[in-house]
Simulated scan of single mutants.
Amino acid sequence: MSDSNTTDITNPSTFILRSIPGLEAAHVWISIPFCTIYAIAILGNFTILFIIKMEQSLRAPMYYFLCMLAVTDLILSTATLPKMLSIFWFNSREINFSACLTQMYFIHCFTMMDSGILVAMALDRYMAICDPLRHSTILTNSVVAKIGLAVVLRCGISALPYPFLVRRWPYCRTNLIPHSFCEHMAVVSLACGDTHLSGYYGLFVLFSVIGLDVLFITVSYIKILRAIFSLPTKDAWLKTFGTCSSHLCCILSFYLPEFFSSLTHRFGHKVPLHVLVLIANVYLLAPPLLHPIIYGVRTKQIRDRLLKHFTRKGTYFFYPGTQALCRDGW
């Protein structure tokens, strides 16, 4: 198939990913940061999983949620980056129709799952700071497992209509997708007829899933900040707020690129296509890259365990009055 393939296609057997339109000549150079991002994401998330599995002292709700986040990020990055790299290195731009729908499902499902796990982490932070005496009795292992199962079911069911809606449309324009992965609206834009249902469903998911997640996190942190500012000293404010810093950084690394990408796609009509595609890639690849770095650097327990395993020196520093916060680990 060639780039000029614009003949009638009722049910295409394959799509052709254009990767980053207009920057084809720079694919080899673009592949360097993309490959680096993938390597860091894989290494970082597997390291987080390894450290938590090996250390019995890290068997707490926050670390279980962190494991869920690491697994989600591993699947999300693996669903997209290998195909991108094959395009950059081998010009392997064809993707089977069913494989395209599968990739689309995984992207939407695990992106929403990232959001759901961040909500679960916000709940953990709220309980740890606003109701610490009942934290361990409410967030038991069985409750954490049920929360994880609820997140998986919600995201799996919410993402299911995406490939089914795409499959039902006839395609009679072209099979060239102006994107580096099977993004939902990029594929729908190739279909004939009235495809407003796909757009409406995308907006429904955006507001009912991501929007509600943002609302819940916002309410949780309003209550957390009220509890922090009720503490007697500024030093206590900073120490308690420091337990939320890793989670806040992860929230910003996830929602800010998504918000910026949504704004540019809806209102940036004069923005070049390759810029829009690059922004979409940043939104998709930033969380798997940044989450393990944030928790590896900012969480004392994980940082100390890394030093213990890789330098064989298990030195831990606990300062008077901070043992509870350090044990809480954020």
Rank of each mutant, 00 (worst) to 15 (best):
residue 3 D to Q: 13
residue 6 T to A: 14
residue 12 P to K: 01
residue 13 S to P: 10
residue 15 F to K: 00
residue 17 L to Q: 05
residue 22 G to V: 02
residue 23 L to T: 09
residue 24 E to M: 07
residue 26 A to T: 12
residue 26 A to N: 14
residue 27 H to Y: 15
residue 29 W to Y: 15
residue 31 S to T: 09
residue 33 P to A: 12
residue 37 I to D: 08
residue 39 A to E: 08
residue 39 A to K: 07
residue 40 I to S: 01
residue 43 L to W: 12
residue 44 G to L: 01
residue 47 T to F: 01
residue 48 I to H: 01
residue 49 L to F: 04
residue 54 M to Q: 15
residue 56 Q to P: 02
residue 62 M to K: 09
residue 67 C to T: 09
residue 69 L to V: 03
residue 70 A to D: 03
residue 70 A to F: 05
residue 77 S to Y: 03
residue 79 A to I: 06
residue 80 T to E: 05
residue 80 T to Q: 07
residue 82 P to I: 04
residue 83 K to I: 01
residue 84 M to Y: 06
residue 84 M to W: 07
residue 84 M to H: 04
residue 89 W to E: 08
residue 93 R to E: 14
residue 95 I to R: 03
residue 96 N to G: 15
residue 97 F to C: 06
residue 103 Q to P: 04
residue 104 M to V: 09
residue 107 I to Q: 02
residue 110 F to W: 11
residue 114 D to P: 00
residue 115 S to T: 10
residue 116 G to P: 00
residue 119 V to T: 11
residue 121 M to Q: 10
residue 124 D to N: 15
residue 125 R to S: 00
residue 126 Y to H: 13
residue 129 I to A: 03
residue 131 D to C: 14
residue 137 T to C: 12
residue 138 I to Q: 06
residue 140 T to A: 05
residue 144 V to S: 03
residue 144 V to C: 09
residue 145 A to Y: 09
residue 147 I to R: 00
residue 152 V to F: 15
residue 160 L to H: 12
residue 162 Y to M: 11
residue 165 L to M: 13
residue 167 R to N: 15
residue 169 W to I: 11
residue 170 P to R: 12
residue 173 R to K: 14
residue 175 N to V: 14
residue 176 L to A: 13
residue 178 P to I: 04
residue 178 P to A: 08
residue 178 P to Y: 06
residue 179 H to E: 14
residue 179 H to F: 15
residue 182 C to T: 11
residue 183 E to T: 09
residue 184 H to S: 09
residue 192 C to R: 10
residue 197 L to V: 15
residue 198 S to C: 13
residue 201 Y to L: 02
residue 203 L to W: 11
residue 203 L to C: 07
residue 208 S to Q: 02
residue 213 D to P: 03
residue 213 D to W: 06
residue 213 D to I: 05
residue 224 I to T: 01
residue 229 F to H: 14
residue 230 S to D: 15
residue 231 L to D: 00
residue 234 K to F: 14
residue 235 D to A: 10
residue 236 A to M: 08
residue 241 F to G: 06
residue 242 G to S: 07
residue 242 G to M: 01
residue 250 C to I: 07
residue 251 I to A: 05
residue 256 L to W: 06
residue 257 P to T: 06
residue 257 P to V: 05
residue 260 F to S: 07
residue 260 F to K: 02
residue 262 S to E: 08
residue 264 T to G: 05
residue 265 H to T: 08
residue 267 F to L: 12
residue 279 I to E: 08
residue 280 A to K: 05
residue 280 A to M: 13
residue 289 L to Y: 08
residue 289 L to V: 11
residue 290 L to Y: 05
residue 293 I to F: 04
residue 301 Q to W: 01
residue 304 D to H: 06
residue 310 F to N: 09
residue 312 R to K: 14
residue 315 T to W: 13
residue 315 T to P: 00
residue 316 Y to I: 12
residue 318 F to R: 09
residue 318 F to G: 07
residue 319 Y to G: 11
residue 320 P to L: 06
residue 323 Q to V: 13
residue 330 W to K: 04
residue 330 W to L: 11
